[in-house]
Amino acid sequence: MTHHPDKVAVGLDRFLDEAIALRRDLHVHPELGYNEHRTSQIVADKLSSWGYDVATGIGGTGVVGTLQNGKGPKRLGIRADMDALPITETTGLSYASGTPGQMHACGHDGHTTILLNSARYLADTRDFTGTLNLIFQPAEEGGAGARRMIRDGLFERFPCDAVFGLHNWPGVATGQFGFIAGPAMASVDKVTIRIVGKGGHGARPQETVDPVVASASLIMALQSIVARNIDPLDAAVITVGTIHAGIAPNVIPDSVELELTVRTFRADVRETIKQRITNLAKAQAESYGATAEIDYPRGYPVLVNHSNETEFARQVAVTHFGEERVENNFRPISASEDFAFMLEELPGSYLFIGNGDSAPLHSPLYDFNDEIIAPASRYWVKLAEEYLAKNPS
């Protein structure tokens, strides 16, 4: 039997050299959250040139390209993130970052390129019916760009029936796909606790209220939350990352500041931990005669993939790439991702594609693997064509 190459793969091959050049150009010119002006302009110009209706300035520097074809009622959203990180690159690559202290250490240059590459093909062939909304998002790296786009009317202006996103994943074989139904990435909250006592001379502790001792007790007590207040089958992490106290060995300071990161995979667990940290901090401080001031801003929520959309996304990979290209035991990830805000608004799924044996994400040695541009672009084209099928089965 003669094997005929997939027409989408053949079609995308025509653009591959240009796509790699674009990805490397974006890598040379990284831009931090809400400052993606050059990147946004490139995205908007390319989408316009291919026939998309383009809206800019959504949630700051966000861009949406809309392509309508035929009279199909379905509306699909696909999202890519655009921002870089405040990290100094040490790869030594010919296309390394040209901006000191900034680099694409998470592959958003690749994600943007993949979606643009798919956009070009879909505009060329238009083998779908309905509305395609391609969302290029700023400030994923801690800036909650997804939430800001939503608050700026993203889904009112560009209604979608479902939304999908993708992230490269180091350590997974190049081009292998990973899918997780349900909680897939952790929530993240950064907590600041200030234990306030009464400072004094280290030789006369009886005249002080020592916040260092109180904070030491609190740090140990915090370890009991996951062990004793959370179901053993639910994952959670409480890490005390910084402790700031004192300036001299013979002086008891007035206060100690602790900074924590908290990660969970369920909204109710997240809430339980908030209550326990707050109560423990106050009680531990009080037991030493000190007081606790707690600042507990909410970070990104748990990213929960919807089961139907995740199964649909998985079937697209199985059908067009084969079972062997899908990782069967892809496990939830304790990192966080603001696509979670979009999945709180709409059904959808966030999937992963292996970046091969690369340095980890957020490493100064990280580089996006250009070999995954072709399969990931083909994947988005297939997902769009099937979701917006002309003759749905």
Score class of each variant (00 low, 15 high):
Glu18Val: 03
Ala19Gly: 07
Ala21His: 12
Val28Thr: 15
Glu31Ala: 04
Gln41Gly: 05
Ile42Asp: 04
Asn69Ala: 09
Gly70Ser: 10
Leu76Ser: 14
Arg79Phe: 03
Asp83Leu: 00
Ser94Phe: 04
Pro100Cys: 00
His108Gln: 07
Ile114Arg: 06
Ala123Cys: 10
Asp124Lys: 13
Arg126Ala: 08
Asp127Gln: 15
Ala144His: 00
Gly145Trp: 00
Gly153Met: 05
Leu154Met: 05
Val163Ile: 15
Pro170Thr: 01
Val172Gly: 03
Thr174Pro: 02
Gln176Asn: 04
Phe177Pro: 08
Gly178Val: 04
Gly182Leu: 09
Gly200Ala: 11
Pro205Ser: 13
Thr208Asp: 13
Val213Met: 11
Ala216Met: 14
Ile225Asp: 07
Asn229Val: 04
Pro232Arg: 14
Thr239Lys: 11
Ile247Leu: 06
Val251Ile: 14
Lys274Ile: 08
Leu280His: 09
Pro301Leu: 06
Ser307Glu: 15
Arg314Ile: 12
Glu323Arg: 12
Asn328Glu: 12
Ile333Cys: 01
Ala335Thr: 11
Ser336Thr: 07
Asp338Ala: 04
Asp338Phe: 03
Phe341Gly: 02
Gly348Met: 07
Ser349Asn: 10
Tyr350Met: 11
Leu351Phe: 15
Phe352Cys: 02
Phe352Ser: 06
Ser358Asp: 01
Asp370Pro: 09
Trp380Gly: 10
Leu383Thr: 13
Glu386Val: 11
